[in-house]
Amino acid sequence: MMNPVSEMPLRLAVWLLLAPLLPGIVNKVKAWVAGRRGPPVLQLYFDLAKLWRKGVVVSTLASPGFLLGPAVAWVAVVGAALLMPLGPSLAGAGFRGDFLVLIYLLALARFCTAWAAMETGSAFEGMGAAREVSYAVLAEAAIIAAVLSLGVQTGSLSLSTMLAPAAGAGAALLAAGLFVVLLAENCRVPFDDPNTHLELTMIHEVMVLDHSGPPLAAILHGASVKLLLFSVLLVQAVLPIGQFAPWAGAGVLAAGVLGVTVGVGFVESLLARLAFRRVPLLLTTAFLLCLFALLVAWKGGPS
């Protein structure tokens, strides 16, 4: 166990540098299932570097919030990631209630992204923002039910102790619920299709239509950090990471995240995107899964 302050740069480096790997892995899996070669795993790194060097076109209608939105959203997502423990060796300095800060930081990121989308006055981006904030209502209920079940299970209210033990009897329910939330919050199939470029069928992509250059790089990087964040949350919520030796724990965590990412890739290859009016049904199901995990946690365990 390291000193929380000195380990901060290391944690920051892990989040910032490893996150863009995940979308690459997802794309590689999709290419593999479809029998293509696909883009290199490191494609997002190249894209980010290129975007950062590019110029920017800003809508004539946009206020300075159009540029501040992506910046604050990026800070919020990275801040949320820094609260998340990375296995027993990089648990960070948690405090009671830090999970609420994490959830609300993600909400702040959502606010900023939707704000920047509304800046352009485009009906498409309004559509995307409306979808994003509406579906988030159900996702938020699900995620609060999930952390509530972890809190009841472990009797603790800080992330590092909440995520260390296994999720107990409701692990399968919790895993399924959180996986659906992961897909929804990161705008993956079956909620959204990151590959499509038809504005009417998108959520996240349609919100960032008018962004270009460095702000778009911040948005893409933030999205990859968010995907990594949810994968890490899912793995630690289900597996007893805290019971491994420090470096073994890190290894198990990495393997778990890889597994989740490959799972996302398979889901994207095998499922079609849902019709929009079916999305609430799936998210409600995720909420119910987390709720039942909560009930199982209440019923079992020491009382």
Binding site: K54, G55, V56, V57, S59, A71, V72, G213
Partner: peptide
């Protein structure tokens, strides 16, 4: 971060154009 992104955008090429329609 807001300041940094602002600086980055305004130090490079940037122009205004109509919203993507």
């Amino acid at each position: 971060a807001g300041g940094a992104l602002w600086h980055r955008v305004h130090s490079g090429r940037h122009r205004r154009d109509v919203t993507w329609d």
